[in-house]
Amino acid sequence: MNREKIFLTVNEIFREIFDDPELSVTDKTDANDIEDWDSLEQINLLVAMEKKFLIKFSVDDVENLQNVGETVDLIIRKIEEKGDEQL
């Protein structure tokens, strides 16, 4: 799965969590750009991403995430790590 596909899937997760089918995020989108994006919704987003991409985050992975782009990069890294473990 390439970055573009992952990004589109992440955007779908944002739409679902914030119940907004029109929502479009960018790499630079952060919690200041979405009114309801608080700590609880951050948990909901990350849990949804874990389930969707079949990955596991750690506290260290997620505590300093700044925006959507960093989150997508983290997902890519976790998918790659998972692939390495399976080799």
């Binding site: 990350l46 849990v47 874990e50 596991k56 985050f57 750690s58 997620v62």
Partner: peptide, 11 residues
């Protein structure tokens, strides 16, 4: 009944 645990957020 607990049906799911998410370790990194202890939920």
């Amino acid at each position: 009944r607990v049906i799911e645990k998410t370790d990194f957020v202890k939920r």
